[in-house]
Amino acid sequence: MSKVQLNQKEQHYADTREEAEEIVSAAKENDHLQMHKITEKYNKYGQYFLIDLTYAYQTPKEVMESQPQKDNAPEGQMSIDDHEGIEYSVDGDGTVNLPDSQLESDDEEVI
């Protein structure tokens, strides 16, 4: 199973509003930007700005729909393509069926 990044949140610091606006304008170049917010803050050293950026790359629905279908066989039967060796199928009651051409083999020695 592969890991897929769905979203990312970033927080940046700026001393002036102009610097904060530059960070936001650079982030807007990314097509995956969903939300940006500039918050003005104060502490004992003075004023500063926090910039929150949220990116969304894919929705969970897109990720789940992009996974290939593994089995097209009817319920209770295994697909012939699931095995790389001999061809066989398994019925719902657990019975294994082999084609007649594969029941006899001249190449193998039975002990």
Score class of each variant (00 low, 15 high):
Lys9Phe: 01
His83Arg: 03
Lys41Met: 14
Gln34His: 14
Ile38Cys: 09
Glu40Asn: 15
Gln34Leu: 12
Glu40Phe: 12
Tyr48Phe: 15
Thr95Gln: 05
Thr54Tyr: 12
Gln77Asp: 02
Lys70Trp: 12
Glu104Gly: 05
Met35Arg: 12
Asp52His: 13
Gln8Gly: 02
Asn7Gly: 01
Gln5Pro: 01
Asn43Gln: 13
Leu98Gly: 08
Ser101Met: 09
His32Gln: 06
His12Lys: 15
Asp100Arg: 13
Leu50Trp: 10
Leu98Ala: 08
Glu62Ala: 07
Asn7Arg: 06
Asp31Met: 08
Thr39Ala: 11
Glu18Gly: 13
Tyr45Asp: 07
Ile51Asn: 00
Val24Trp: 00
Met64Asn: 14
Glu87Thr: 04
Met78Lys: 03
Met1Gln: 05
Glu84Asp: 07
Lys3Phe: 14
Ile23Val: 13
Tyr55Trp: 01
Pro68Gln: 03
Met1Ile: 14
Asp15Gln: 15
Gly46Pro: 10
Pro99Thr: 10
Glu21Tyr: 11
Ile111Ala: 05
Pro60Ala: 04
His32Pro: 03
Ser105Glu: 02
Glu108Ser: 03
Met35Asn: 08
Asp15Glu: 14
Ile51Val: 10
Asp107Ser: 13
Asn72Arg: 05
Ser79Glu: 10
Glu108His: 10
Glu19Gln: 14
Lys61Met: 03
Lys28Cys: 09
Thr95Lys: 05
Ile86Asn: 06
Glu62His: 03
Gln58Lys: 05
Asp15Arg: 15
Tyr45Gly: 02
Ile80Trp: 02
Asp106Leu: 06
Pro99Leu: 13
Glu18Tyr: 13
Lys37Thr: 12
Ala14Cys: 09
Glu84Tyr: 02
Gln69Glu: 08
His12Arg: 14
